[in-house]
Simulated assay, not measured.
Amino acid sequence: MSTIPVSDIPCVSLLYKLDRLKPAESSTYTPSSTYNDKIALLRNDITKLEVDSIVNAANNSLLGGGGVDGAIHRAAGPELYDECELLDGCVTGSAKITKGYRLPAKHVIHAVGPVYQSTKRQGKHTSLLQGCYRTSLELAVDNKLKSIAFSALSTGVYGYPSDEAAETAIGEVRKFLDSGKGDSLERIVFCNFTEKDEKAYFDMIPKFFPPDQTVEKKDEESPAPTSEDLAAQLPDPPTKNPSEEGQPDAKKLKSLKES
């Protein structure tokens, strides 16, 4: 399996230069070249990323499932399951950290996202999803990790609409950075596997992380690689969807306990 170094994951600044990201019509957030160099976005297999931590879309048991969860457990090997057995599960809206074992990532942060329909009826869907991202970032900082890559939490079988999930996720990351708690993090990656999730992030990123026009003007004054050269360096997107084998059916989802 070919892996992807963190240096090859395109940051927001580069995606603006390539015209892959379009500025939002309006944004209430202050442009920051520091943030735009730190936030990264790609569509690929998260098990290939050479980062300090990847965030798994886990279930309450933390013992694996289908989709991305199953793919991470398979790639990490049985040692990951063994460590997860010792964690006594995890409540919805929170996360726990383990080693990465056979993954190129050093650690796995297992975040348990909300089942959309049931938690929306309770008015908890947004706060629970925010909790997943906030706790994951806190775990990365507390463990002195420099890079973290998020999968699109709850947007698969848990039914969270991709656009709502992306807005909540990106907004919580921006809030974390504005608080100063994320200063030690060098790269925060949003790694999507499906086109619907990728589109949602491309639509929402400019709202929270607008381009820094002052940096763009400086770049225009100095020689730089062409867009074609830069684009050629981007990792190729996946050609296959993650296996759905082992995903809980609808009846089981309804019975999941939400905190």
Rank of each mutant, 00 (worst) to 15 (best):
S2V: 12
S2M: 05
S2K: 14
I4C: 01
V6F: 01
D8H: 14
V12A: 08
V12S: 03
S13M: 07
L14D: 04
L15D: 08
K17F: 10
K22L: 13
P23S: 03
A24W: 12
A24E: 11
P31Y: 07
S32M: 12
T34W: 05
N36G: 06
D37I: 01
I39T: 02
L41Q: 03
L41I: 10
L41D: 07
L42K: 08
L42Q: 10
L42V: 11
N44Y: 14
T47C: 14
L49E: 04
E50L: 03
E50Y: 03
V51S: 02
I54Q: 02
I54S: 01
V55Y: 00
N56S: 11
N56A: 04
A58G: 03
N59V: 08
N59Y: 09
N60K: 13
N60V: 11
S61H: 11
S61E: 15
G64Y: 10
G66S: 10
G67I: 10
V68I: 15
D69C: 14
R74M: 08
A76I: 08
G77N: 08
P78I: 08
P78W: 04
E79S: 14
E83R: 09
L86R: 15
L87H: 07
G89P: 13
C90L: 08
C90M: 07
T92N: 03
G93T: 07
A95F: 10
A95C: 11
T98V: 07
K99S: 11
P104Y: 07
P104C: 07
K106T: 05
H107Q: 09
H110F: 04
V112I: 06
T119D: 06
Q122S: 08
K124Q: 15
S127Q: 15
Q130H: 10
Q130R: 15
C132M: 11
R134H: 11
T135W: 01
T135V: 13
L139D: 02
L139C: 03
A140Y: 06
K146D: 05
K146T: 06
K146N: 10
K146S: 14
S147Y: 09
S147E: 09
A149V: 13
F150K: 06
F150V: 08
F150P: 09
L153Y: 04
L153G: 00
G156Y: 09
Y158M: 02
Y160H: 06
D163H: 12
D163V: 13
E167G: 02
T168H: 04
A169Y: 04
G171V: 11
V173E: 05
R174A: 08
R174Q: 11
K175I: 03
F176A: 01
L177T: 11
L177D: 11
D178C: 06
G182R: 12
L185S: 01
L185R: 05
I188P: 07
F190I: 11
N192G: 03
F193T: 11
F193P: 02
E195F: 01
E198R: 13
E198P: 00
M204I: 12
I205V: 15
K207W: 00
F208H: 15
P211F: 06
Q213C: 00
T214I: 07
V215A: 04
V215G: 00
E216G: 00
K217F: 01
P223I: 05
A224S: 15
T226E: 04
S227L: 10
A232G: 15
L234W: 10
K240R: 13
N241Q: 14
P242R: 09
E244A: 13
E244H: 03
E245S: 12
Q247H: 06
Q247V: 13
P248Q: 10
K251F: 06
K251G: 12
L253G: 06
K257G: 00
E258T: 15
